[in-house]
């Protein structure tokens, strides 16, 4: 439903994404001419068409578009959850589309941090254990380091007092903060966030996105946040707009200010 989607101001068309990508030669993430077609029976859905974009190391960008425009499909391909029908995706030198299913599992564990729409925490693990769990899926960070890292993240996210609580004892905002901590836990190259505020009210939503932006900036991480809510883009560096599967503009958040 497009209710709260406000399209970009026509008087400020921004940049063409393909052209913009050309000027980011050292980008950590390169999406080149990526398309995704869902086929079921005779019908084809062109969820993403010839998307080209580049994101620099340390950038936190937004992917903005109305519901059904292909945002989730695009970041799922970037995060190794879906394979593109055509095109290539390169993250820090790794050709994501070329990885096998097994390699993709390891790729997601070590190189990508996900924050889902609903926090999707493990209900029978405490906040701290939810963070530690993902560290068991990789080998770069030792057990001891992981414990220190989990405690530090919980502290930074204002969850130190809630570390021993299971998700059902946490508020919606707290859960989403745990999910952010979990995404940062394995020190990934890229953090992908899909509509993180969908389940939260506006005020809480802004707090969560602000915290997310701060964590990503502080750690020099690269992040992409999917949203259909124009009010959330002010915490990002750049905004990619998507409509009907096509990336249309790249803007400065300030150009979209209401």
């Amino acid at each position: 439903m497009n209710d709260d989607f406000v399209p970009a101001h026509p008087q400020d068309p921004g940049l063409d994404p393909a052209q913009d990508a050309g000027s980011h030669a050292d980008a950590i993430l390169k999406v080149e001419d990526v398309s995704k077609i869902y086929r079921s029976g005779d019908t084809e859905v062109h969820a993403v068409s010839s998307a080209t974009m580049a994101v620099d190391q340390g950038e936190f960008v937004a992917l903005l578009g109305p519901s059904g425009s292909g945002k989730t499909t695009l970041i799922s391909m970037i995060g190794g959850l879906l394979s593109p029908t055509t095109g290539s995706i390169t993250l820090a030198g790794t050709d994501v589309a070329a990885l096998s299913k097994r390699e993709l599992t390891a790729f997601r564990a070590e190189r990508v941090g996900f924050v889902f729409q609903a926090a999707n925490l493990v209900p029978f693990l405490t906040a701290r254990e939810n963070l530690l769990y993902v560290s068991t899926l990789q080998k770069r960070i030792s057990r001891k380091e992981a414990h220190a890292r989990a405690d530090q993240l919980l502290e930074e996210l204002g969850l130190a007092a809630r570390a021993k609580n299971v998700p059902e004892q946490l508020s919606g905002g707290e859960r989403q903060r745990v999910a952010i901590g979990r995404a940062l836990m394995n020190d990934p190259d890229l953090i992908l966030v899909d509509e993180p505020t969908a389940a939260l009210d506006t005020k809480l939503g802004r707090q969560v996105v602000e915290l997310l932006a701060r964590e990503i900036k502080q750690r020099g991480k690269t992040g992409i946040m999917v949203t259909h809510d124009l009010r959330m883009v002010e915490y990002t560096d750049r905004v990619f707009e998507i409509l009907d599967g096509h990336l249309t503009h790249v803007e400065q958040p300030s150009a979209l200010a209401h």
């Binding site: 439903m1 519901s67 059904g68 799922s76 959850l81 889902f116 992908l192 259909h228």
Partner: peptide
């Protein structure tokens, strides 16, 4: 399918 974990069209 792990892809079902993310998103969900609003």
């Amino acid at each position: 399918d792990p892809a079902t974990a993310i998103g969900g069209t609003l």
